[in-house]
Design a protein around this nucleic acid. Structure first.
Lengths: 192, 192
DNA sequence: GTTATTTTAAAGTGATTATTTTAATATATG
DNA sequence: CATATATTAAAATAATCACTTTAAAATAAC
C-alpha cells in the first residue's frame, strides 16, 4: 500500500558507490548523491538513514557486486593458480588508465573520517580476502606449489599487502606500464 | 617596518602538516587550521594565499623536514645496504600503532580532491624516491649485490610500489605484527 | 470513492565551509 | 611624536554542508 517508489534500490546503490569510489566519503556530498542517483533527499534519509548509512550500504554493494565476482576465482581455484589469476587481475586492473583504486582500501588512508561501522567493514573486507588467499596457499603448499618452509598465513598477508600497494601505486598516471611486471616479481617471492 | 608577526612560519607549517597528515586535505577545515596553528585567518590568507597554498607548503615542509632525513640514508649509502636500511625503516614505521601513513601517498587515494599543483607535488615526491632507489640498485648491481639479469629501474619501481603497500596496509590496526616480515620477503625478491 | 499509507517534491533548518572586509594594534622610520 | 607599514582581532560574506519539515501525489484496502 501507499505510493510506490520511483527508484530502484540497486540503481541508487550502484550510483552512490561510483561517487564514493571516485571522490571518497568526505568529498562526496549529499547533494551530489541525490543529484546523481535521482533519489529524493527525504527518500534517501528514509531508506538509508543518512550519508553514513548510504555509504555503508554502498560498501556492501561494492563487496557483493564488484569484488565477490573477482575473488570467485579464488573460491573456484583454491590453489596456486587461483592466487596467480587473482593477482594478475589486480595488477592489470591497476595498470589501466582510469583506475580508481579499491573503494574499501581507498578509505584506509581516511579511516577516522568515515564511521566506525564503515571502518570495521573495510577491515573485515580485507581480512576476508586474506583468508581466502591463505586457504589457497595452504593447498598450494600441500600440492608442492610452494615450499614447506613458507608460512601460508604470512604469505597471504604479503599478497594482500601487495594488493594495497597496487591500489595506491596505480593512481600514478605515469608509471602505468611497469605495474604488470610486479606480478612476476611477486610470484617469484612466493615461490622462492 | 609595520607590526611584527607573532607567529613562526615553521611552527605554523609543522602544525598544519600534522593536521593534513592525520585528517587529509578535505577533512581538514580552515577553522581547524587557524585554531590549531594559532595563526589568524587573515594572516593565513596573506601568508599562504588560502587552504590550497597552505597545503602545498605543508607538503614541501613534509618532504624537507620529515622525509628528506629519512632518505638521506639512500644518499649516504647508494647501494644495496642503503635500500635495505630504507626499506627496513619503512616497514618498522608502518608497524607502529600510531602509524599515519605518508602525507604524500595518503593523498593518492584522493587525488582529484586536492589541487593540480598538490597532485603534481605528490607525483614528483614519489618519483624522487624512486630515482634514488634506482641509483642505489644500479650501484648494487655493479657491486654484485643483485644479479645482472635484474633491471634496476623496474626493481626501484617495485620497491616504491611496496612502500605504497606499507602506507596503506599499515593502517590496519590488527595485522601490525606481520609487517616487519614483509621486509625479508621483499629483499628476497630483489636478490632472486 | 473514501481512507489509510507511503513516497514524492520542494522549501527550510542551523551549522559549517572557505574567504573577505573592517578596524584596531604594534612596530620602524623620519 | 607623527607617519607609513604591516599584522592583528573579529565580524561579515555567500556558498555549501548534512539533515528535517511540510504538503502534495499516488497507490492499496475497504
Amino acid at each position: 500500500m501507499g505510493r510506490p517508489r520511483t527508484y530502484s534500490r540497486d540503481v541508487v546503490l550502484e550510483k552512490a558507490m561510483s561517487l564514493f569510489w571516485r571522490n571518497g566519503y568526505k568529498a562526496t556530498s549529499v547533494s551530489d548523491l541525490v543529484r546523481e542517483t535521482g533519489l529524493n533527499t527525504a527518500s534517501m534519509y528514509k531508506e538509508f538513514g543518512g550519508k553514513d548509512g548510504l555509504f555503508l550500504e554502498a560498501l556492501e554493494y561494492y563487496r557483493d557486486h564488484v569484488i565477490r565476482p573477482r575473488y570467485k576465482i579464488l573460491i573456484d581455484n583454491p590453489n596456486l593458480s587461483g592466487v596467480e589469476m587473482f593477482l594478475r587481475n589486480v595488477m592489470t586492473g591497476a595498470a589501466k588508465a582510469e583506475y580508481k583504486g579499491c573503494l574499501m582500501m581507498n578509505h584506509l588512508a581516511q579511516k577516522h573520517v568515515i564511521s566506525a561501522d564503515a571502518a570495521k567493514q573495510v577491515g573485515a573486507f580485507c581480512a576476508e580476502i586474506e583468508s581466502l588467499i591463505e586457504n589457497a596457499l595452504r593447498n598450494a603448499q600441500s600440492e608442492g606449489g610452494i615450499g614447506l618452509d613458507k608460512d601460508p598465513k604470512q604469505l597471504a598477508s604479503f599478497v594482500v599487502f601487495s594488493v594495497h600497494g597496487a591500489v595506491l601505486y596505480g593512481r600514478h598516471e605515469n608509471k602505468k606500464d611497469v605495474i604488470p611486471s610486479f606480478y612476476d616479481t611477486l610470484m617469484g617471492a612466493l615461490r622462492h
